[in-house]
């Protein structure tokens, strides 16, 4: 999949916590965790389950830096 986002971190879904509208998905990216909030509808659409291989996509404009 080619998309404009500069950052695509490959990882594995380790946890999905579903709310009514939004779900929290925890992704293990080489020992570090990336947390994603996506809609429950998206989880169902992608048939996302714990153990799935996913890419955590982050637009470069969305990345904050701290020193």
């Amino acid at each position: 999949m080619k998309i404009s986002a500069r950052n695509a971190l490959k990882g594995k879904v380790v946890d999905i916590a579903k709310g009514q509208i939004v779900a929290k998905v925890k992704v293990d990216v080489g020992g570090q965790f990336v947390t994603s909030l996506v809609s429950v509808e998206a989880i169902d659409d992608l048939d996302l389950k714990v153990g799935d291989e996913v890419s955590a996509i982050i637009k470069s404009t969305e990345v904050m830096l701290a020193k």
């Binding site: 999949m1 998309i3 998206a42 992608l46 404009t61």
Partner: peptide
């Protein structure tokens, strides 16, 4: 506009974005 991402082609990417 900075929130909008692009993918080439007409096929919808399998991505969580609604």
């Amino acid at each position: 506009s900075s929130f909008v991402m692009l993918a080439p082609g007409a096929e919808l990417p399998r991505i969580s974005a609604r």
